[in-house]
Design a protein around this nucleic acid. Sequence first.
DNA 1: ACGCGCGGCGTACGGCGTACGCCCGCGTTG
DNA 2: CAACGCGGGCGTACGCCGTACGCCGCGCGT
Lengths: 255, 255
Amino acid sequence: MASERKATADPARSLAILWRTREPTSRSAGPGLSVDRIVRAAIEIADAEGLDALTMRRVGEALGVGTMSVYTYVPGKAELVNVMVDTAYGEMPRPAVEGDWRARLERIARDNLALYQRHPWMLRAETTRPVLGPHLVAKYDHELGAVDGIGLTDVEMDAVLTLVLGHVKSAARAASEVVDLERETGMTDGQWWQSHAPWLATFMTADSYPTASRVGTAAGQQHGAAYGPEYAFEFGLQRVLDGISVVVVERASSG
Amino acid sequence: MASERKATADPARSLAILWRTREPTSRSAGPGLSVDRIVRAAIEIADAEGLDALTMRRVGEALGVGTMSVYTYVPGKAELVNVMVDTAYGEMPRPAVEGDWRARLERIARDNLALYQRHPWMLRAETTRPVLGPHLVAKYDHELGAVDGIGLTDVEMDAVLTLVLGHVKSAARAASEVVDLERETGMTDGQWWQSHAPWLATFMTADSYPTASRVGTAAGQQHGAAYGPEYAFEFGLQRVLDGISVVVVERASSG
DNA sequence: ACGCGCGGCGTACGGCGTACGCCCGCGTTG
DNA sequence: CAACGCGGGCGTACGCCGTACGCCGCGCGT
C-alpha cells in the first residue's frame, strides 16, 4: 500500500493527465476508456463507500473492464487520486465576487466545507506533492479574488487563504470523524460517549483532572446535542476572520 | 488494510490497553513482551521510517519475536497506533502555567508543533474514534489551564483549544509534506517547483489566471527561501490569537 | 495485403493485516 | 512430587492490495 502517496517521479506525465493533454485516440472512438470515465467512476466509488473501498480492481469492475486496463490511462493509484481531487475542485461554484472581504471569505469557507461534506474522501487523500491541476489553479485564482485589493501583500494573501482553508479542513475532518464513527459503530456520537463513560470513569476520577472533567462534560453535552462539529467550525471561522480583520484594518489605516 | 482505522468494537479492551490495566504477568517475569515494549519499538520505527514502514511484521522483528506474538498484547494495528499516539502525548512538557493567556496559548502551540516535528507520523495516524488515553486526558487538562479563568465559557474554552491545535496540525502537516517531498524526490522544494514550472507554464499562461500567477510566484519565492511553512504557521497563529483576543476582551469588558 | 502499434487484460508476485490452532513450559493443585 | 491446564509464543495460511510483465487481436497507414 502506502497507496495514495508517491506519484511517479515523471512530472510531465502527471501534469499531462491532470490537464488532459491528449486527443481522444482517433481509432475505436467507441465507448472506450478515458481518464475522465475512470475518474468519474472512481469518485463515485469513493463518495459512496470511502477511500478504503477505492481499489483499482473496483474501478475496473465499475467500468466493465479488466483491472490492468486502467493502468493504460493512469500510471498508478496515487495519480488517480490526484486527478480525483482536482476534478472535485472543478465542481465548486465560483460566484462573482461580492460583499466585503469578510463576507467573501466566509462564503469561500462554507463552499469548501460543503465540498468536503460531499466528498469526505478528500480529507483522507494524502498527496505529498501538490496537485497542480487546472481546477485547483482556477480555484486558487478565484479565492484569491476575495482578498485581493484590500491592502495585503501577496504573501499575506496566500497566508490568509491557507489559514482559512486549513481551518475548514480541520473542522471538516472532525465532523467527518463523527460521521464515520456513527456509521462504523451504529451508535450516535452521544451513545458512544455514554457507553465509554463508565469505563473512563473507572480510570479517571473527576478530581484527578478537574478541568478536563468539567470542560469535557460541557463539550460532551454539545456533542450530545449533535452540533458539536458545527459549533467548532462556526466559532473557529469567526475567530479566524476576526484575526484577519486586525491585519486588514491595520493595513488600511497605516498604508 | 484500511489499516489505522476501525479499532475493535470492544471499548473495555481498548481502554484497558491504553490505561495499562493489567499487572505484568507474575510468571516468566523475564524479558517477555509487553504493551510498553511493543509501543516503544513501534514508535521507533515510525519515527525513523514513517507510518508506511510500520508493519506488524517489522514490529515483531524489531523485538526478536514472531509477528503474531504482538497480537497477544494488542488486538490489532489500529489499537497499536492509538497507544502510540497516546504515548507520544505523554512525552510533552507540561510546564507550570505562566504569563498571560496569549503567551500560554502560544507556548502550547509551539510545544504541539515540536511534537509533530518529532513524530510526523502522528499527522497521518487516522483515528476515527477519539484516543481517550491517560496522556491525552492529561494533556487536555493541562492545556485547558491556559484558557481557564479568563472569562470564557467551558464550551468556548474547548473551542479555543480545538482551534489552536487545529491550526498547529494544519501547519505541521504542510511542513511535513515539504519534508516528505524532499526525501522522496531528492530535490528541495525550490528545485521541485523549478522543475515543474516549465510544464505548468505550458498549460497555464499568466494571463489566464493573473492573480494566481502573481501571488503564486510571490508565495513560491517564500518557499524557495525555505521558510514557507514556518511563515504560514507564525502568521496563522498570530491571526488565530488575535481572533481569540477579540472574544476575551469582549467577555472581560461585559461580564 | 500486410504488418505493426496500441488498447485491453490474464497471470503472477511480493507484501499487507490477521484468523486459527499447535506447542511447550510454567505455576498450581492433588 | 507428579499431573495438569492455561496462557504466552508463533508457523502457516488466507484473502486482500498495488502493479510488473508479456501476450493477444484489432484497425489503421502504407
